[in-house]
Each structure stands twice: as structure tokens, then as C-alpha cells.
Amino acid sequence: MDERVATALGEAFPERAVDRTFGVGPSWNGANETVGVAFADGERAFCKVAVAGDGSRIARELAVLRYLDAERSIAGPGVLAGDPDADLPYLVTAPAPGRELLGVWEDAGDDENAGEVEREALLRRVGATLATLHAKRFETHGEIVGTDRGGGLALDPAPWPDVLRATIERTREIGTSERLADHYDAAFDCVEATRGRLEGAPAALLHGDVAKPNLFVSDGDGSDPAVGPDGIVPIDWELAHVGDPARDLVRAEDQLLNGFDSEGPARYADALYKGYRDRAGGLPPGFAERRPIYEVVRMLGRSGFIDQWVTYLDEPLESLVDRADAELRARLDAV
């Protein structure tokens, strides 16, 4: 067992024996490390530790999970233990109910048409879940710093353009390559140039990382609060913030459906947005006007991790760099 994980589990469960730990799949985030835990009594959990000792992400995720548990509009994994102020900050959660969306997606349908129908249904459920998450409006945008006295989210309030800039900085912190470092500067400049468009955005709780491995799918009639009305349970809330719900939607579409410089089938994107509109009555106000800005910011998921993309696409680095530069220029022109 990793010494850091052993330290966290020993502090959280001093009298509980651990049988083993196990991996949870690849991650491009080097700030935290997460492993699965099998206790000697047969129960399982997941332990996340802040490898550099910075507990801010742990504090953010812990606050959001407690907020979701109290607010109950959508579900998150149960908190078993957590201490963002420990020498080695940690969070231990129960397993999310159901199966990871990635596996459900890959197993959908025995033939092509049936698979498409199943995937569209899944995306409508994800869209509805995001609409439910975004339904509650906050008085201000801001970074989540913990839990307030009333059990809600404690925020470090700031104008939305400044919060958006902070999320760009976080992407830069966890990025694995500086090969396209100028793309961060271009994103900052884009935010500043469009500050007037951004400042009028509504304020809602955003997940910030809506990817297939971060969503669990559970069947049911919608009455179980542990899985929520749509049976979609998001995990991994460490990038959550209070911001423009349009940004969460743009990022969700990209992470769920798109490739390095390719878009997924239009019918899948339509299903995601239909699920959202059916639940919310429409897309977030100003969605079309602000979408191009968020598509520029989203490019950093390619640019900051270009070395990781090389291993997945089996192409020379310089080829991907050229394509990323061209794509960023096109997105900036669209703003």
C-alpha cells in the first residue's frame, strides 16, 4: 500500500483493518491520488489524498458532497471520512451506486441501432441531471472554500470572469506539458476581451469535470435519494465551483462526446441538450453568446495535456501541436 494512503487510512480508521488497495484507472490530475480500498470486513471505499499537501481540492469536494447530501436534488457518493487540514489531506467516500457510465456506454446495445438508442437515453439522463444541479441559483459566483455555518457552501466570491480565470490557472497547475503554454495566455486574453459578455452570466453550482469515468448509472424508479431522480451519480467534485451553467454544459458535451479535434455525432449532442431543456425549460440564459468563449477555454484540455494525447492517438507530437494551434485559432476567430 502507498505510504500516503496508509497514513490517511490509519488516521481515518485507526481500528479498521485494510485487506488491500487497488487502482481506479488512469488520471491526468497529478495533484491528488485516488485508490480503491477493500477493508478486511468486506466493505469497500475510495481514498483520495492530496499528494502535495494542499488540501484546497479536498476541502472543496468535501463541502460539495456534504451540500449534496443535505440538499438532495442530486446524489453524490457518501462521505465516510475526510480532513482537508490534516498534514496529508484526505477524503474517503463510499462507492457510488451503479456502474461507471464509461462501461455502460461501451456495453450499450447488441447492434448499432440499439446501441445508439441506449446512448441517447443515457445522455438525456445526464442532461437532466445537470439541469437539476444548475436549477438552484446563487447570489454570487465564486470559488468553493468549505462549508458555511448553515451547512451550505462557503464561497470566496468574485466576478465570474475572475472565477473562470482561476479555473484556467488550475488547469495549468495540473497540466502535464508546457509545449503549448501560450495557449493559456490566449485563453486569459479571450476572457478579458469578453468580460462584458461574461459578467451577466447566472450563478449555479458546476461540477467542472463531467466525463464518463466521473458519472455512475443506476436503474430505479427515481425514488431512491442515493441515486437521484435520473439515476446518474456524479463523483469527483474537486473542480466544482459556482459559475455559469453554460460553461458546465459546453464542457460536458466536449468531454462526453468529442475527440482531440473531432466532434461526436450530432444526435448525441442533441440528446444531451434535450435532457437539459426538458428538465430546465430551456438552455441557460445567454448560452449561445457565451459558448464560443468556453470552447476556447476548453481547448486547454488538449493543449495542457498534449503529451498525454500523443499516447492515445499514436501520432507524432508535432502533428498534434500543429492541429491544436489551428483549432485554437479557429475557436478564437469564432468568439
Rank of each mutant, 00 (worst) to 15 (best):
G109M: 04
A45D: 01
S319G: 13
P95H: 09
L88Q: 08
L164P: 04
D2Q: 09
P225I: 02
A211P: 02
P229V: 12
G222I: 08
A40Q: 12
S56Y: 12
S223I: 12
F260V: 11
R251H: 13
H141N: 15
V242F: 06
A81F: 14
D278W: 01
E106C: 03
V297C: 05
P245Q: 13
G150A: 15
A166P: 03
L65N: 07
R44A: 11
S56K: 07
A246M: 05
V242Q: 02
L153K: 06
G23M: 02
G53C: 07
I232F: 00
H183D: 15
T7W: 13
L62V: 13
T21I: 14
E199P: 06
G264E: 01
F39K: 02
E11F: 10
D244F: 02
K48C: 01
D307K: 12
K136A: 12
R247E: 10
R125D: 00
L155K: 10
V335K: 02
D107L: 01
V79T: 09
Q308Y: 03
E61Q: 08
P26N: 12
E199T: 12
A81P: 09
D54N: 13
F39G: 03
V335I: 07
Y268W: 15
E199D: 07
A131H: 01
S73C: 13
A181N: 13
D83G: 00
V49I: 15
R165D: 09
L65S: 06
I232N: 00
H141T: 15
R60T: 10
V310M: 13
T129D: 03
A334C: 07
D83S: 03
P285Y: 01
A70T: 10
V163S: 10
T34I: 04
E100L: 04
E169C: 09
Y312F: 08
F39M: 05
L249F: 02
P14A: 04
S56N: 10
A204Q: 06
A114F: 00
G103A: 14
A330I: 14
E318V: 04
M1L: 07
R137I: 15
L65C: 09
D85Y: 06
A203K: 11
V321K: 06
A6C: 11
V92A: 01
K274D: 11
A96Y: 03
A204M: 06
V233D: 00
S262F: 15
D162Y: 15
A75I: 06
R57M: 11
D87Y: 05
P229M: 10
W160C: 01
D333R: 12
R251W: 08
K136W: 00
A17I: 14
A181E: 13
E238L: 07
H207V: 05
D148I: 06
A226E: 10
A158Q: 07
W160D: 04
A50P: 02
P292K: 10
E318G: 05
D307N: 13
L332R: 14
R298E: 15
L332S: 09
R195L: 04
G275Q: 11
D219P: 03
N113S: 14
F216I: 00
V145S: 05
R137A: 14
P245I: 09
E43I: 03
P157K: 13
L300W: 06
W28R: 14
N113L: 14
